[in-house]
Amino acid sequence: MALSYKTRRRLSLLVLVVGMPLYIVAAVTLVGLFDRPPFWLELVIYVALGVVWILPLKPIFIGVGQADPDAKTPEDDGNSR
C-alpha cells in the first residue's frame, strides 16, 4: 500500500523532528562505547552513520518537497471560462 502525499509529509516531519535527534544520540553513544579511534576513522564512522539512516526511510522522503500531486487545480473545478 502506497502512502499518500499528506501522510508522507507528516511522517517525514516526525522523522526529522523526533527520530533524527534520537538517532544522533544513539550514534554518539555507540561510538562512545569504544576507545577513541583515530580522527579519520571516527570521521568515516560518523559519515557512514549519517548516510545509513536514510536508506530505510528513503520512500517516505521521495517527492515531499514537490507540490501535492493530489491537490485540485482551478482547471479541475470545471468553472473555466
Rank of each mutant, 00 (worst) to 15 (best):
L55C: 04
L41F: 12
K58W: 15
G32K: 02
I60T: 09
G19M: 11
A67D: 14
A27T: 05
M20L: 15
F34L: 08
L3M: 12
L33V: 06
S4Y: 08
F39T: 15
F61G: 01
V47H: 00
P59L: 12
P59V: 11
V15I: 15
K72R: 11
R10T: 06
I60Q: 04
V18N: 13
D76P: 06
A67E: 13
L49A: 01
I45Q: 00
G78I: 10
L14T: 14
D35E: 12
V25W: 13
T7V: 15
S4E: 11
L3N: 09
L16K: 14
V64T: 10
V17P: 05
L13I: 08
I24F: 08
L55T: 04
V52W: 03
T73E: 07
A48Y: 01
R36W: 07
Y23S: 09
S12T: 05
I60F: 09
L14D: 14
L43P: 01
V25P: 05
G78N: 09
P21E: 13
G50Y: 02
G78R: 08
I62T: 14
P69Q: 06
F39I: 14
L13E: 12
M1P: 02
F61P: 00
R81C: 05
P69Y: 07
G50M: 03
V44H: 02
D76H: 13
P56I: 04
A26Y: 10
I60G: 03
S80M: 08
G78S: 10
R81T: 05
D68M: 04
D76T: 13
R8V: 10
L11S: 04
L57D: 03
T73I: 08
A26M: 13
D76I: 11
L3C: 07
L13Y: 12
V15F: 09
R8N: 10
M20E: 14
F39K: 14
A48E: 00
P37W: 07
P37I: 06
L13G: 13
Q66G: 07
G63Y: 12
P59C: 12
V15N: 02
L41W: 09
P38E: 15
R10W: 03
L41H: 05
L55F: 05
L22P: 08
K58V: 15
W40V: 06
D70C: 04
M1I: 11
G63K: 07
F39M: 15
E42V: 05
D77F: 14
V31K: 00
M1H: 11
V31G: 00
N79H: 13
P69D: 09
I45S: 00
G78Y: 10
A2S: 10
L13D: 10
